[in-house]
């Protein structure tokens, strides 16, 4: 059990997909305007990651080595389609605000990266916990980025006003604000890492 727990924790801290591996940034930056979008994208990506990790781990021995990448892509695309349809049916508002970034989970390097680097070499249970850890790590990173952007850029968190009198820095809600926040956060985590070492 402890082993699985370690697999799970690895994705959250030591190999966090956003801040350490720097994978799958397109959706991270594009949807992190508000926390609710961030959570929605995080859950969608986690679902795809879990599904594709499990399936790839199950069928890894029957995939021919040379065409493994197309096989992984088909598996991932299937789960993305399922997510798209579920989201359209049960939360159309979220689907509208995430827009093209839902189908784009299919080209998220994080999902393919985990299939290739982890699930294709490990057991189903390990892959499940790896996918869960990576997904949760991704979601937490999204919540952090979108929290900063929403709090400073719009003065709200999940739609609730934070400060009585505060002039929001509009720029953080814009694309350039997203790039600035991720740049500074990456620098900040580098400082932390340097201090520990």
């Amino acid at each position: 059990m402890k082993k699985f727990f370690n697999e799970f924790l690895r994705g959250i801290a030591k190999e966090n997909p956003t801040f350490v591996l720097v994978l799958g940034l397109c959706p991270t930056l594009a949807v992190s305007v508000s926390v609710i979008n961030g959570i929605g994208m995080g859950i969608a990506a986690t679902f795809v990651l879990l599904g594709s990790n499990i399936i790839v781990a199950v069928i890894k021995n029957s995939i021919p080595q040379r065409i493994r990448i197309p096989c992984y892509i088909v598996v991932i695309a299937t789960f993305v389609t399922v997510t798209e349809m579920l989201m359209k049916a049960y939360s159309p508002a979220l689907d509208r605000s995430l827009g093209i970034y839902v189908p784009l989970i299919v080209v998220n390097c994080m999902v393919l990266g985990r299939a290739e680097a982890y699930a294709s070499k490990n057991t189903v249970m390990n892959s499940f916990f790896d996918g869960l850890g990576m997904g949760v790590g991704f979601t937490l990173a999204l919540i952090l980025i979108s929290g900063i952007r929403e709090a400073l850029g719009a003065g709200t968190i999940l739609g609730h006003r934070l400060f009585a009198s505060f002039e929001p820095a509009f720029i953080l809600g814009m694309p350039s604000g997203a790039l600035l926040v991720i740049g500074l956060l990456l620098g900040f985590f580098n400082v932390l890492k340097g201090r520990k070492a």
Partner: peptide, 23 residues
Amino acid sequence: IPESLKDFPLAFIIASIMSLSFL
């Protein structure tokens, strides 16, 4: 460049300023 900003972090900050000018 400060050690902690090398490579990725600085690239994003530059991209942010570029994006600002594209606004």
